[in-house]
Amino acid sequence: MEFKWRHRLTVWLLYTILMLNGVRSWTGEIHGRVVCDVCADSSIGPEDHVLTGAEVAVLCITKSGEVLNYQAFTNSNGIYTVAETMPESERWDACLARPISSFNSHCTHLGDGSSGVKFGYNHPSGYSYAVRPFVYRPAIAPAYCM
């Protein structure tokens, strides 16, 4: 809870500083979820669970061509978030989100189709983009999955 409060305060302060300098600011957010597909059946069921502490990288190119690299970790709900406030002229143009690692000892193999997601970011300030879930699987599915 404190992280969210601190993050919102930081965004607000940056927004205020930019506005005082006459620069029109823009805020964007990217979020997604990381899940363990326990039975490796490519569907989310009651046996599956979110992964806490999974690492995700988000690479964005701004309208001016600058490359920004973000690192995020999932929270207890398996959700990662990347947010940025910057001048409107420097806003994100396109991004790539990709999973880096799962720190869950039983669920470490990246599932099919989870290598990364490229997307254009053309949302107005204050909106967010939801990336489809990244999926990890165990090396060997438990016997009850068979």
Rank of each mutant, 00 (worst) to 15 (best):
V131I: 15
V34M: 04
C145V: 03
Y144P: 00
S114C: 04
C36M: 11
S76K: 07
V82T: 00
Y136M: 01
N122K: 06
H109A: 09
V50C: 00
K118F: 15
E66V: 15
N75R: 06
C39F: 09
T27G: 04
P133W: 10
C95D: 07
F103V: 13
E90F: 08
F3H: 02
C39R: 07
R6C: 00
I140A: 11
Y129P: 03
S128R: 13
Y80C: 13
D41P: 14
S114G: 09
M86H: 02
S43W: 10
D48E: 12
V50H: 04
T16Y: 01
T108S: 01
R98T: 12
C145P: 03
G126M: 14
A143V: 05
M1I: 04
G22C: 08
V67A: 04
P46K: 03
W26D: 13
S114T: 08
W12M: 12
Y15R: 10
T10G: 05
F73M: 15
S25K: 02
I61D: 09
R98C: 05
Y127H: 13
F134N: 01
V50Q: 06
F3Y: 06
V67S: 00
M146V: 12
L110W: 03
V35G: 03
C36A: 07
G126Q: 13
W5P: 01
H31W: 06
V131W: 08
V131L: 10
H49S: 12
I140P: 01
